[in-house]
Protein backbone atom coordinates (compact mmCIF):
# COMPACT_ATOMS: atom_id res chain seq x y z
CA UNK A 1 0.00 0.00 0.00
CA UNK A 2 1.37 3.44 -0.88
CA UNK A 3 2.13 5.57 2.16
CA UNK A 4 3.08 9.21 2.56
CA UNK A 5 5.37 8.33 5.43
CA UNK A 6 4.81 11.71 6.99
CA UNK A 7 4.00 12.04 10.67
CA UNK A 8 4.32 14.18 13.77
CA UNK A 9 5.79 12.69 16.94
CA UNK A 10 7.34 13.26 20.31
CA UNK A 11 10.88 11.95 20.68
CA UNK A 12 12.30 9.43 23.14
CA UNK A 13 15.90 10.39 23.88
CA UNK A 14 18.44 7.62 24.47
CA UNK A 15 21.63 9.57 24.02
CA UNK A 16 24.24 6.84 23.87
CA UNK A 17 26.73 5.87 21.17
CA UNK A 18 27.18 2.37 19.76
CA UNK A 19 23.84 0.98 20.91
CA UNK A 20 24.29 -2.60 19.73
CA UNK A 21 21.55 -5.01 18.72
CA UNK A 22 22.29 -7.17 21.77
CA UNK A 23 20.98 -4.24 23.87
CA UNK A 24 18.01 -3.65 21.57
CA UNK A 25 16.97 -7.28 21.91
CA UNK A 26 19.09 -9.65 24.02
CA UNK A 27 20.03 -12.96 22.41
CA UNK A 28 18.12 -15.10 24.88
CA UNK A 29 14.87 -13.86 23.32
CA UNK A 30 15.82 -14.98 19.82
CA UNK A 31 14.35 -18.46 20.09
CA UNK A 32 11.09 -17.13 18.68
CA UNK A 33 9.84 -18.31 15.27
CA UNK A 34 7.62 -15.28 14.62
CA UNK A 35 8.08 -11.50 14.51
CA UNK A 36 5.19 -10.71 16.78
CA UNK A 37 5.32 -9.46 20.33
CA UNK A 38 8.97 -8.39 20.47
CA UNK A 39 8.06 -4.81 21.45
CA UNK A 40 7.61 -5.72 25.09
CA UNK A 41 11.19 -7.06 25.10
CA UNK A 42 12.87 -4.14 23.34
CA UNK A 43 15.86 -2.91 25.42
CA UNK A 44 14.89 -5.55 27.98
CA UNK A 45 18.03 -5.40 30.11
CA UNK A 46 18.04 -1.59 30.27
CA UNK A 47 14.31 -1.41 30.73
CA UNK A 48 13.58 -3.93 33.49
CA UNK A 49 15.17 -5.01 36.76
CA UNK A 50 16.23 -8.66 36.83
CA UNK A 51 12.92 -9.52 38.55
CA UNK A 52 10.97 -7.94 35.67
CA UNK A 53 10.02 -4.65 37.38
CA UNK A 54 10.16 -1.76 34.89
CA UNK A 55 12.90 0.77 35.64
CA UNK A 56 11.06 4.08 36.07
CA UNK A 57 13.91 6.17 34.71
CA UNK A 58 14.29 4.32 31.41
CA UNK A 59 12.98 6.41 28.55
CA UNK A 60 10.75 3.78 26.93
CA UNK A 61 9.06 3.23 30.28
CA UNK A 62 8.18 6.94 30.40
CA UNK A 63 7.22 7.45 26.77
CA UNK A 64 3.82 6.65 25.30
CA UNK A 65 3.95 4.63 22.06
CA UNK A 66 0.79 6.43 20.94
CA UNK A 67 2.57 9.78 20.75
CA UNK A 68 6.21 8.72 20.50
CA UNK A 69 7.22 7.19 17.20
CA UNK A 70 10.79 8.52 17.10
CA UNK A 71 13.89 7.59 19.09
CA UNK A 72 16.95 9.86 19.25
CA UNK A 73 20.34 8.19 19.86
CA UNK A 74 24.05 8.92 19.32
CA UNK A 75 26.56 7.41 16.89
CA UNK A 76 26.70 3.99 15.25
CA UNK A 77 23.19 2.89 16.23
CA UNK A 78 22.48 -0.82 15.71
CA UNK A 79 26.03 -2.12 15.57
CA UNK A 80 26.86 -5.77 16.25
CA UNK A 81 24.69 -8.75 15.44
CA UNK A 82 22.72 -8.81 12.16
CA UNK A 83 19.53 -9.90 13.94
CA UNK A 84 16.47 -8.42 12.22
CA UNK A 85 14.73 -8.97 15.54
CA UNK A 86 16.16 -5.55 16.49
CA UNK A 87 14.08 -3.49 14.02
CA UNK A 88 11.14 -5.89 14.54
CA UNK A 89 11.25 -5.15 18.26
CA UNK A 90 11.64 -1.38 17.83
CA UNK A 91 8.80 -1.25 15.29
CA UNK A 92 6.61 -3.52 17.38
CA UNK A 93 7.00 -1.12 20.33
CA UNK A 94 5.61 1.58 18.01
CA UNK A 95 8.65 3.36 16.61
CA UNK A 96 8.72 4.46 12.96
CA UNK A 97 12.00 6.35 12.84
CA UNK A 98 15.36 6.41 14.62
CA UNK A 99 17.37 9.61 14.49
CA UNK A 100 21.07 9.14 15.16
CA UNK A 101 24.45 10.52 14.15
CA UNK A 102 25.14 7.32 12.16
CA UNK A 103 23.95 3.73 11.72
CA UNK A 104 25.61 0.35 11.34
CA UNK A 105 25.20 -0.96 7.77
CA UNK A 106 23.24 -4.16 8.41
CA UNK A 107 20.89 -2.46 10.87
CA UNK A 108 20.12 0.33 8.39
CA UNK A 109 19.22 -2.24 5.73
CA UNK A 110 17.14 -4.32 8.11
CA UNK A 111 15.28 -1.28 9.46
CA UNK A 112 14.30 -0.01 6.01
CA UNK A 113 12.79 -3.39 5.20
CA UNK A 114 10.51 -3.08 8.20
CA UNK A 115 9.11 0.41 7.80
CA UNK A 116 11.52 1.84 10.36
CA UNK A 117 13.28 4.90 8.96
CA UNK A 118 16.93 5.43 9.97
CA UNK A 119 17.71 9.15 9.84
CA UNK A 120 21.35 10.14 10.18
CA UNK A 121 21.72 13.82 11.06
CA UNK A 122 24.91 15.88 10.86
CA UNK A 123 26.52 16.82 14.19
CA UNK A 124 25.15 20.34 14.38
CA UNK A 125 21.53 19.48 13.58
CA UNK A 126 21.70 16.47 15.89
CA UNK A 127 22.96 18.69 18.73
CA UNK A 128 20.26 21.29 18.06
CA UNK A 129 17.53 18.67 18.26
CA UNK A 130 19.00 17.24 21.48
CA UNK A 131 19.09 20.74 23.03
CA UNK A 132 15.54 21.53 21.93
CA UNK A 133 14.35 18.34 23.57
CA UNK A 134 16.28 19.05 26.74
CA UNK A 135 14.41 22.35 26.99
CA UNK A 136 11.08 20.82 26.08
CA UNK A 137 10.96 17.03 26.45
CA UNK A 138 7.49 17.02 24.92
CA UNK A 139 8.62 18.90 21.82
CA UNK A 140 7.48 17.37 18.56
CA UNK A 141 9.19 16.73 15.26
CA UNK A 142 7.59 16.18 11.88
CA UNK A 143 9.19 13.54 9.69
CA UNK A 144 8.60 13.58 5.96
CA UNK A 145 10.13 10.82 3.87
CA UNK A 146 8.80 12.35 0.65
CA UNK A 147 10.65 15.61 1.31
CA UNK A 148 13.49 13.90 3.20
CA UNK A 149 13.09 16.44 5.93
CA UNK A 150 12.78 16.64 9.71
CA UNK A 151 11.00 19.65 11.12
CA UNK A 152 12.45 20.42 14.55
CA UNK A 153 10.35 21.60 17.50
CA UNK A 154 11.43 25.19 16.79
CA UNK A 155 10.04 24.94 13.26
CA UNK A 156 13.40 24.79 11.48
CA UNK A 157 13.79 22.09 8.83
CA UNK A 158 16.72 19.76 8.29
CA UNK A 159 17.18 17.56 5.24
CA UNK A 160 18.41 13.99 5.49
CA UNK A 161 19.73 11.41 3.02
CA UNK A 162 17.85 8.27 2.31
CA UNK A 163 18.65 5.50 -0.09
CA UNK A 164 16.55 6.23 -3.22
CA UNK A 165 15.62 2.58 -3.70
CA UNK A 166 14.42 2.16 -0.13
CA UNK A 167 12.47 5.41 -0.43
CA UNK A 168 10.80 4.18 -3.60
CA UNK A 169 9.79 0.91 -1.93
CA UNK A 170 8.52 2.57 1.25
CA UNK A 171 6.48 5.25 -0.48
CA UNK A 172 4.95 2.85 -2.98
CA UNK A 173 4.44 -0.01 -0.57
CA UNK A 174 6.48 -2.28 -2.86
CA UNK A 175 8.23 -5.35 -1.68
CA UNK A 176 11.88 -6.12 -2.33
CA UNK A 177 11.32 -9.84 -2.80
CA UNK A 178 8.72 -9.21 -5.52
CA UNK A 179 11.15 -6.82 -7.18
CA UNK A 180 13.98 -9.38 -7.07
CA UNK A 181 11.73 -12.04 -8.56
CA UNK A 182 11.37 -9.93 -11.71
CA UNK A 183 15.01 -10.82 -12.43
CA UNK A 184 14.41 -14.57 -12.61
CA UNK A 185 15.29 -14.78 -16.30
CA UNK A 186 18.56 -12.95 -15.80
CA UNK A 187 19.34 -15.27 -12.90
CA UNK A 188 18.68 -18.32 -15.05
CA UNK A 189 20.97 -16.93 -17.74
CA UNK A 190 23.65 -16.25 -15.16
CA UNK A 191 23.37 -19.77 -13.78
CA UNK A 192 23.62 -21.12 -17.34
CA UNK A 193 26.92 -19.30 -17.77
CA UNK A 194 28.45 -20.85 -14.66
CA UNK A 195 29.27 -24.19 -16.29
CA UNK A 196 30.80 -26.66 -13.91
CA UNK A 197 31.39 -24.06 -11.19
Amino acid sequence: MPSTFQFRSQVAVLMRDSIDTDQIIPARFLTTTTKAGLGKLVFNDWRYESDGTPKGDFVLNQADPETTRVLLAGEDFGCGSSREHAPWALADWGLRAIIARSFADIFRNNALKNGLLPIALPAEAHATLAKDLERDPEGEVIISLQNQEVTLPDGSKIGFDVDPFAKHLLLNGHDELDFLRTFTEATEAYEGSLGSR
Binding site: S82, R83, I106, N109, K113, E176, L177, L180, F183, T187
Partner: peptide, 18 residues
Protein backbone atom coordinates in the same frame (compact mmCIF):
# COMPACT_ATOMS: atom_id res chain seq x y z
CA UNK B 1 28.77 -11.12 4.61
CA UNK B 2 25.91 -11.25 7.09
CA UNK B 3 22.33 -10.47 6.08
CA UNK B 4 19.05 -9.93 7.90
CA UNK B 5 16.18 -12.40 7.94
CA UNK B 6 14.28 -10.59 5.13
CA UNK B 7 17.30 -11.12 2.92
CA UNK B 8 17.58 -14.75 4.04
CA UNK B 9 14.12 -15.08 2.48
CA UNK B 10 15.28 -13.29 -0.69
CA UNK B 11 18.21 -15.66 -1.11
CA UNK B 12 16.16 -18.75 -0.35
CA UNK B 13 13.61 -17.76 -2.98
CA UNK B 14 15.86 -16.27 -5.69
CA UNK B 15 19.50 -17.19 -4.87
CA UNK B 16 20.20 -13.48 -5.34
CA UNK B 17 20.39 -10.29 -3.32
CA UNK B 18 20.17 -6.59 -4.03
Amino acid sequence: FGIGTSQVGHVLATQTLL
